[in-house]
Amino acid sequence: MNTKNSIVTYALVGLAAGTVAWLLLGTKEGRKQLDRASDGIRELSNSIRKSTKDGLHKASKLADRATEEINDLRSQARNKGQSAIRKADQLAKEGINRASDAVTSAKSRAEEEI
């Protein structure tokens, strides 16, 4: 019984598909509708392609700008780091000179007292 029902079901589905195909392709109105549908699909595809290209172009511009900004920040950080190192070196030298002067002064006072 199930086999007979399956065969009947497949036959009805085939008949329906054939009817739809004949309506779409067998009549002038059906071909017009199919052509309009094809045109609509083509327009949608072109629109998607254009949007994708525009999006990729914008993303590329943003990536380039971000790269430039990162390079600028890297350069600024390097310059500030070098400036800080020079300043620390200068302060260290000044500290060493003060300490040396204090040692010399203390040595002179010690020699005077002796």
Rank of each mutant, 00 (worst) to 15 (best):
K58M: 11
K53I: 08
Q33T: 08
R31M: 04
L34N: 02
D54S: 09
R65P: 01
G30Y: 00
E43I: 05
K32R: 15
L34V: 07
R31E: 02
D64K: 10
R42Q: 15
S47M: 03
G55L: 04
L34S: 09
L56F: 13
K58I: 07
G30V: 00
S60A: 12
S38E: 15
N46S: 12
R31T: 01
A59C: 01
L62A: 13
A37N: 10
N46R: 13
K28C: 00
D39G: 10
G40K: 12
D39E: 12
R31I: 02
A37D: 05
G55H: 04
K61T: 09
K53L: 14
S38R: 15
N46V: 07
E43G: 08
A63W: 05
H57L: 12
G55Y: 04
S47G: 11
S47I: 01
D64H: 04
D54T: 06
R49W: 05
R65K: 15
H57E: 14
D39I: 04
R49A: 06
K58W: 04
H57M: 10
S45G: 09
S47F: 04
S47H: 08
G30C: 00
H57N: 13
L56N: 13
R65L: 11
Q33N: 10
R31P: 00
R31A: 01
L56I: 11
L44K: 15
K32L: 12
K53D: 14
Q33I: 05
K32E: 14
L34R: 06
T52D: 08
R31S: 01
K58Y: 07
G40A: 06
E43L: 11
S47Q: 08
S38M: 13
D54G: 02
K58N: 09
K53A: 11
L44W: 13
D35G: 08
E43F: 09
K32P: 01
G30F: 00
K53Y: 11
A63P: 00
D39R: 14
R36V: 03
G40W: 04
Q33L: 12
L44T: 11
S47R: 10
D35Q: 15
T27S: 02
K58G: 05
A63D: 06
E29V: 03
R42I: 10
L44E: 10
D64M: 03
